[in-house]
Simulated assay, not measured.
Amino acid sequence: MQKKEKIAVVLFNLGGPDSLEAVKPFLFNLFNDPAIITVPNPLRWCLAKFISARRAPFARNIYREIGNKSPLLEQTEAQTRALEEKLNQSGTGDYGCFIAMRYWHPFSDETVSKVKQFNPDRIVLLPLYPQYSVTTTGSSLIDWTKKAKAADLAVPTVMIREYPRDEKFIQAHATLIREALVDISSPGDYRLLFSAHGLPKKVIESGDPYQAQVEQTCAAIIEKLGDTGLEYVTCYQSRVGPLEWIGPSTEDEIDRAGEDGKNLIIVPVAFVSEHSETLVELDIEYREFAEKAGVKDYIRVPALQCQPDFIESLAGLVLKTAG
């Protein structure tokens, strides 16, 4: 009997602090990334130190709202287990799935060590960022490549770059939106807001495809939903700093919905897990903003997490790429 090929699948994600004490170093790692602050060292290091110290007290208050830490790692671990089970059911190889976080544990160097112990024949890199950006997938890839080279992990490696219109990924979103619509008798009274994490305009103007791919995802979801009677808008949240960011902003669209007498259904379209931007920003801060703006009903659709179609999407992407 022929031995099955061993394939390591490395899931890229942002990471999040696992305690209140980890908030400041997590923020430093974020702002010290040259993909985030595009100035050379030592200036970037100094800026990262300053910004992380300044933002840490505010950020700790955010994490206090959700159990004093980010839930991202636990959710990514659940996705990883579900994906590994699905892949090994395919009979096409011996799959091991691993997590490499960009700004907090497990970092790439930790994961490289685990992958070396697994001793794979091939590696598939799978970003949990459906839409490509140099600030997310691109940064994770650079970091992984550097750490793998330093550890002499010389294994054939392929990358899944993006999947903004993957059929099962789109189906997963459509299923969760339909579930939110079940108890709504008049869909025409609602507006669907697809809320994605924003980026500075200069990133997009330099050729980053993120915004275009987010809009592709939203259009594909609307097409999959069919005639629901819902209006929809793609908007962007989480702006920080003085730079001009892509728009429209989620806050502005919430305000406009109030002026238009519309109820809202909010979909986190670029986040596949729950974390501070969904559990605090969307669920608490924007909900309060919507009430003040006169929005009578504010419904937030869950992030995909382990939704079965989404796990099938990831498995299909890996099988196609590894095949």
Score class of each variant (00 low, 15 high):
28 F>A: 02
112 V>C: 07
9 V>L: 03
44 R>V: 05
169 F>V: 03
60 R>L: 06
21 E>N: 10
270 A>F: 10
132 Y>I: 02
172 A>G: 07
28 F>H: 08
234 T>Y: 13
187 P>S: 02
309 D>L: 06
194 F>R: 02
80 T>W: 09
26 F>K: 05
260 D>I: 00
45 W>V: 00
164 P>Y: 07
52 S>K: 15
179 E>K: 04
275 H>N: 04
39 V>M: 10
166 D>S: 11
77 E>C: 01
30 L>K: 01
13 N>S: 06
173 H>Q: 10
233 V>D: 07
105 H>D: 12
210 Y>D: 05
71 P>V: 05
289 F>L: 09
22 A>V: 04
199 L>F: 12
133 S>G: 05
110 E>I: 10
176 L>G: 00
66 I>E: 09
176 L>E: 11
150 A>V: 08
34 P>I: 06
228 T>V: 15
181 L>E: 11
154 A>G: 04
274 E>T: 01
121 D>E: 12
211 Q>Y: 05
53 A>Q: 13
313 S>E: 12
278 T>Q: 07
84 E>S: 06
106 P>Q: 14
295 V>P: 08
305 Q>I: 02
236 Y>H: 05
168 K>M: 14
191 R>H: 03
220 A>R: 03
82 A>D: 05
312 E>T: 00
106 P>K: 14
205 E>F: 08
84 E>F: 15
215 E>P: 01
246 I>M: 08
312 E>A: 12
22 A>E: 13
47 L>G: 05
189 D>C: 08
182 V>K: 11
208 D>P: 15
213 Q>P: 00
